[in-house]
Design a protein around this nucleic acid. Structure first.
Lengths: 175, 175
DNA sequence: GCCTGATAGTTCACCAGCGAACTATTAGCC
DNA sequence: GGCTAATAGTTCGCTGGTGAACTATCAGGC
């Protein structure tokens, strides 16, 4: 895992040099988006390294947590796909893996036999309650650089950004 | 591309339900890190969809841009690896792909024949100057929700966060 | 000069995720 | 009731990225 500091510095320099040749480049925005991706990537890698001992990656983990947090502990692959930003293909594989470990179960829906019902098992619940707490301290540590006010401000701006880019992303808007 | 709004809402709800069962969970931090990853992911997907017509993904693009922005237009794979947060394996493949399109060239360093010198070609420079400007408007649009002050604040906090998690990520610190 | 260890890249085998094609089921419509 | 279109999942083949093993080169001690 490379240290971020030199990367951030190199990025500022590199972007600056490009801007000299292409002056219309929006430097602040480039720096923002790059730093955002860099930071998210570092957090993700750190998180997945914590999940690795449990044999999970972030997608598996999120899938399991969505079932854990659902009202009745069940959901269809399709629902999970949209919530987890996954394609059906991948959700099939994830469900296979989790089912193989008996963390979730598979069944066909009675009212619509096309649908599959994934449900977290008691073993799955025990697994979550056991593995979750150790993840908290590093997470707290990650944001320990923020004062309460800064944390609030950051969350507010981040949420604003998330909801703003929301409608921009989708290219296929032809009805 | 799914819309982010319902995802954000669902996340807030889901995390809330988990917190009822596991009260020691640091809810604000969980929301922060999730929203950060979600936003960065959406921006990345949007960006890569713009790169696709040029036959590049973000890694290819960053590699090419690092060469473009370097002082003399050249660098070794190792340098690019550390700056682009890539493993050597992947950099080999990226360099192969870019070299095949004559956007960069390959040569052995004279002073250390282990090293390889990657250099952006004139065609590569033309390619960059042509493809770069169309990327700017969508990028500006992405952050158009921010006032100048908000943008500054966001960048400041993001940079603070990036530099803070920097030393936390690395697990192998045994000398 | 020569052996040992370190370093720079590459190759190989694998995993995670995706698009396209396919299957099974359901809904709508005549 | 039977045909058509739409929907939910799965399978298959491919791309992007990784760790482990390997090759080639260099550096340092002797």
């Amino acid at each position: 895992m490379p240290s971020l500091k030199p990367l951030v510095d190199a990025m500022y320099e590199g972007v600056g040099r490009v801007a000299q040749r292409i002056p219309e480049m929006p430097v602040p925005e480039v720096l923002l988006v790059r730093m955002l991706m860099m930071t998210a990537g570092a957090l993700l890698r750190g998180f997945e390294s914590q999940l690795k001992p449990y044999g999970l990656n972030d997608s598996d983990f999120r899938t399991l947590m969505m079932l854990y947090s659902s009202e009745d502990g069940s959901a269809s692959p399709g629902e999970l796909c949209s919530l987890a930003e996954q394609k059906p293909t991948n959700m099939t594989r994830i469900a296979n893996a989790l089912a193989k470990r008996d963390l979730i179960s598979r069944a066909h829906a009675t009212h619509d036999r096309r649908q599959v019902v994934l449900r977290i098992t008691p073993a799955g619940r025990r697994f979550v309650t056991k593995m979750l707490p150790p993840l908290f301290p590093p997470l707290l540590q990650s944001f320990a650089c923020f004062s309460p006010n800064e944390r609030k401000t950051f969350e507010r701006l981040l949420k604003k950004l998330a909801l703003h880019i929301d409608p921009l992303v989708d290219p296929d808007v032809s009805p």
